[in-house]
């Protein structure tokens, strides 16, 4: 009994923690230097290509940068919507990733840049995430979130699904992939150089799976669906009210 009570407390903490900690951002100080450098190197090509694409587009369309900035700000605000977690009767809220939406509107590479900027602002002014963990956070939210959301949207479009369902799949897939990225980043923390490579990978994979299950079993599983529905409604709403916007951004064909 003495062991059961503290152990139960730990389990409850594990289940509640991701809700409170806005689990999608790995906080400052968590990553050892080798992993911090690794993630920065990994995301660098995406940031460079994204910046070059922005520069090129800026030359072609002079008003493109204000547009990217404004849409980036809108997606930032969207990512702070307090969506109630369905199973907890509104007792807890979770926040969408938003990268699926920005990737749909501006393309995946520009969306990576937007995500990087949003994460930088969040690290400084909300104390969510951090500067040394910016690399892994950009990888999970920016790279995985944007690319998966973009390709899910395009695939759904090719399959001839309605715009709502295209948005829905973009929202769900980008959110799932974002959490998968965070789980990979955290799971690799238990990777030990001293162990043989297969064993170290196995330990890390086990930790990744556990973290992903904790995320999904608590708020993030229902949130994926909720984010999908919100993105679906949002994109259909824009199409209904101002179809020209989506046509100009080449989200839908004329």
């Amino acid at each position: 009994m003495k062991r059961i009570i503290p152990f139960s407390l730990i389990l409850i903490s594990i289940i509640i923690m991701p809700n409170l900690a806005l689990g999608m951002h790995i906080t400052e100080g968590i990553l050892p230097p080798k992993w911090a450098i690794f993630w920065f190197i990994l995301i660098m090509p995406f940031i460079v290509i994204g910046t070059l694409k922005l520069k090129k587009k800026k030359r072609e369309v002079p008003g493109f940068l204000p547009l990217v900035g404004l849409v980036g700000a809108a997606v930032f605000v969207f990512s702070c919507f307090p969506i109630p977690v369905v199973g907890l009767n509104g007792m807890a809220t979770a926040h969408p990733a938003g990268t699926g939406m920005s990737a749909m509107l501006l393309g995946p590479f520009v969306s990576v840049v937007i995500a990087g900027i949003a994460l930088f602002i969040q690290a400084l002014f909300l104390a969510h995430g951090g500067l040394t963990t910016l690399g892994v956070n950009i990888f999970s939210m920016g790279v995985l979130g944007s690319f998966s959301g973009y390709f899910a949207f395009r695939l759904a479009q090719r399959m001839g699904l309605k715009l709502f369902w295209c948005g829905f799949f973009a929202g769900v897939v980008s959110d799932l992939c974002t959490y998968m990225g965070t789980s990979i980043g955290l799971g690799l923390l238990v990777f030990e150089g001293g162990e043989s490579f297969p064993i170290a990978i196995m330990h890390s994979a086990k930790a990744m799976l556990e973290i992903f299950v904790v995320f999904m079993a608590t708020s993030q599983g229902p949130l994926c669906i909720a984010e999908g529905i919100v993105v679906g409604f949002a994109i259909s709403y824009v199409y209904k009210v101002r179809p020209g916007i989506l046509q100009n951004l080449k989200v839908v064909k004329v």
Binding site: L70, V71, A74, P84, F233, A234, Y237, V241, I245
Partner: peptide, 17 residues
């Protein structure tokens, strides 16, 4: 709530553009 957030996000995009 979800539907309201959807139209809110849509309006936000329109207004931002």
């Amino acid at each position: 709530t979800i539907k309201s957030f959807g139209s809110l996000a849509g309006t936000l995009i329109i207004r931002s553009i």
